[in-house]
Design a protein around this nucleic acid. Structure first.
Length: 411
RNA sequence: GCCCCCUUCGUCUAUCGGUUAGGACGCCAGGUUUUCAACCUGGAAAGAGGAGUUCGAUUCUCCUAGGGGGUGCCA
């Protein structure tokens, strides 16, 4: 996405417009790229306004006589310049999404276009700036619909052609209230820190207010090929985290292990303390994490989930055992673990297939179901009742660490 | 208050006047399974209400209700 963030006074939620020449996207506008034609005229208007206001005040004071106090106007407070809007008729905006929207002109007031300090206000600035840049399409949130009518009037007053307007429906929060930068807004960085992938976010967002038959998963190419303004619905939607999580899980499972590892390391600084892995600067732990990635990504909905589920590779002994895992480690379980030490110790090769063979042989001999062996092991090795496949856990941890963690529980 | 926009399962949506109103997420049940996920099968779940137009309305029109947005020397 080009042009995220804010430049000067504009920002993501204000306006997105495309200059014809380059086809690049711009967000907001810059008040420094100014409007050669308009500004000087307005400036002089302002001087006139001030002079006129002075005269009016004097007149008023004369009219009220010299009743006492020293009534001598020093200076008129700085005037503003307003746009003289048409009083009759209506202004019609032909919007690509909303259709023809008409507003009676009597409902649109004479808005301020130049502040008392001489700077232009939003509605004048976007119009002048978009015009200067040759912007062809103004696409923004439906909260700007009324502004479009005002801006249309300004375009007309200036004798300029209007760009194409498109006002897309807003996205409300899960509670149905507006989601915007000034109210309960979540910036894009917040979603990053929650462990959402850019691809997932894009895919989720594109389906809000827009659809392509029954399709749910879109590649970037498909989005570009199929998306069209004319197919956008007009009703606002709610932000649904479970839907986002589902897509995010989908894309995590599709991601390469190395790519996930890189993203994980990148977001660690942005995470709250309790979500950061312990000893996060330990390279060996990161190596183990990437080794465990196939099993971890299978189970995760967010990057934070991966870090959380993969915490056991970062943890140092003695391991913290959570409540559920603790209850699992009763006397029977400890006996199983004790009996496991010897056959594991005897393994020369420490890899998934050797480990699996050894454990299955053990269950065969002892008559225990694999679950009766796997769960205590899982508890002792990860401190949790859920984890990636148990053979993978042993393999990733390494022989020495595995035996030590079991020893911690049986002694 | 005034103006504008919106209204199909809880949520996102499909439907270009005639369908058993479809799909997805979530939820419930079952299957698979070393846990949890993933995956597979099945299930519950919707046209806000009222008038019209029409042989026939979810679909077109109007009204009501509800929701949202706007109404700044904010953007």
């Amino acid at each position: 996405m080009p042009g995220w963030g804010s430049n000067g006074t504009g920002s993501l939620f204000t306006s997105i417009s495309a200059p014809a020449a380059t086809g690049r996207l711009w967000t907001g506008f810059s008040t420094t790229a100014t409007h050669i034609d308009v500004m000087p005229r307005l400036k002089s208007l302002k001087r006139c306004a001030r002079a006129r206001a002075m005269r009016a005040v004097r007149r008023f004071m004369r009219g009220h006589g010299a009743t006492g106090a020293p009534l001598k106007p020093r200076r008129v407070s700085d005037p503003v310049i307003r746009f003289r809007a048409p009083r009759d008729g209506e202004t019609v905006v032909d919007d690509q999404v909303q259709g023809k929207v008409s507003v009676a002109n009597r409902d649109l007031d004479d808005l301020v276009i130049l502040r008392s300090d001489g700077s232009p206000t939003y509605n004048l600035a976007v119009v002048a700036d978009d015009h200067d840049m040759g912007v062809t399409h103004v696409i923004r949130g439906a909260d700007h619909l009324t502004n479009a009518a005002r801006q249309a009037q300004i375009y007309s007053a200036l004798g300029w052609d209007r760009p194409v307007f498109a006002h897309v429906p807003l996205i409300h929060g899960p509670d149905g209230a507006k989601l915007s930068k000034r109210h309960g807004a979540l910036g894009i960085e917040a979603y990053r820190a929650m462990g959402y992938l850019p691809v997932a976010l894009r895919n989720y967002l594109v389906r809000l207010g827009w659809s392509h038959g029954d399709d749910e998963i879109f590649s970037m190419d498909e989005m570009v090929k199929w998306f069209d303004l004319t197919e956008i619905g007009r009703s606002p939607s709610r932000f649904d985290f479970s839907r986002l999580e589902n897509l995010n899980g989908h894309y995590i499972r599709l991601s390469e292990d190395e790519a996930l590892g890189a993203m994980l390391r990148a977001i660690v600084p942005d995470l709250p303390m309790e979500e950061k892995p312990p000893n996060a600067d330990n390279e060996e732990s990161w190596r183990k994490l990437s080794q465990a990635m196939p099993g971890l990504k299978e189970r995760a909905k967010t990057l934070v989930d991966i870090l959380n589920a993969g915490r056991f590779v970062f943890a140092s002994r003695p391991l913290e055992i959570d409540d559920k895992a603790g209850k699992l480690l009763d006397e029977d379980a400890r006996n199983v673990l004790r009996a496991l030490l010897q056959p594991l110790e005897a393994l020369h090769e420490w890899n998934v297939s050797e480990i699996e063979a050894a454990l299955r042989e053990f269950t065969g001999m002892s008559g225990l179901k694999l679950g009766k062996v796997a769960q205590p092991l899982r508890a002792a090795l990860t401190g949790r009742t859920t984890s990636p496949g148990i053979f993978d856990v042993l393999s990733v941890l390494g022989k020495e660490e595995t035996l030590a963690r079991i020893q911690d529980q049986v002694s």
